[in-house]
Write a protein that binds this DNA or RNA. Structure first.
Lengths: 116, 116
DNA sequence: CTAACGTATCAGTGGATAATGATATGACAG
DNA sequence: CTGTCATATCATTATCCACTGATACGTTAG
């Protein structure tokens, strides 16, 4: 992707990369389901597995992603590990997204770029 | 993906799908660059091509995605087509993301799920 | 009508990534 | 120390998605 040389004139490409990475982190229904489960209360991995119906390795993978991104935090408790939202701003972002969807969102379903 | 049967108990999966689709729409550096260009002023496709250094079909494709998602709107002017942000809430969402990045964002770079 | 320009669409290709099964690590019980 | 449970990591596979070049469509100029 060397075509971005002309982008140097815009707001730093690094910022765009970071923003894209954040949105991509949020751009998965299963990760959103995990965040949704954590919004109400702290959960162990098993509880998330139960709520989402996903495989355990899959959940651990997503949690690692969310943890590295700083969106959730973890706390060891015996042989359990309990996760929770790392920051209130995460919930704010999700809420604003819902507001946008409420305003213009019906169209998103029409987007043929994603085959669903 | 039949493993989501247990998800029916949570907030409707459809909502999660829509949110994911929105975030995925925003989860591409090039689309963010396009939105960035449009945030300052209305642009023709050619102008966006010039600013981003992307190929013209590529830009048209991304614009179609953003248009279908209701994030931008278009206006024909002779043989030009001028695009602009569809809603102020888009800018709000981008700004919220930057706030979150400012707070916890440095960690996102550590996320190994995306190979960059 | 014909040529030139701006934009959109299509088919093909390569790369990235989510899900899975097997397995490793770590903690507690007996 | 051995077995069991909770979680994390690894390798593989299948899928999805962004980019490219060719081309079609629509508009204006001559």
């Amino acid at each position: 992707m060397t075509a971005q040389n002309t982008q140097d004139d815009l707001s730093a490409p690094d910022t765009l990369e970071l923003r894209a990475k954040l949105f991509r982190g949020l751009g998965d229904p299963n990760r959103l389901a995990i965040l949704d489960a954590l919004e109400s209360n702290e959960c162990s991995v098993q509880e998330i597995v139960g709520r989402t119906g996903l495989g355990q390795p899959n959940v651990s993978n997503h949690l690692r992603c969310l943890l590295d991104c700083g969106l959730v935090s973890r706390r060891s408790e015996g042989r359990f590990v309990r996760y929770r939202l790392a920051d209130g701003r995460v919930a704010v972002l999700l809420r604003d997204a819902d507001r946008l969807l409420a305003a213009t969102g019906t169209g998103i379903d029409n987007c043929k770029r994603y085959t669903e």
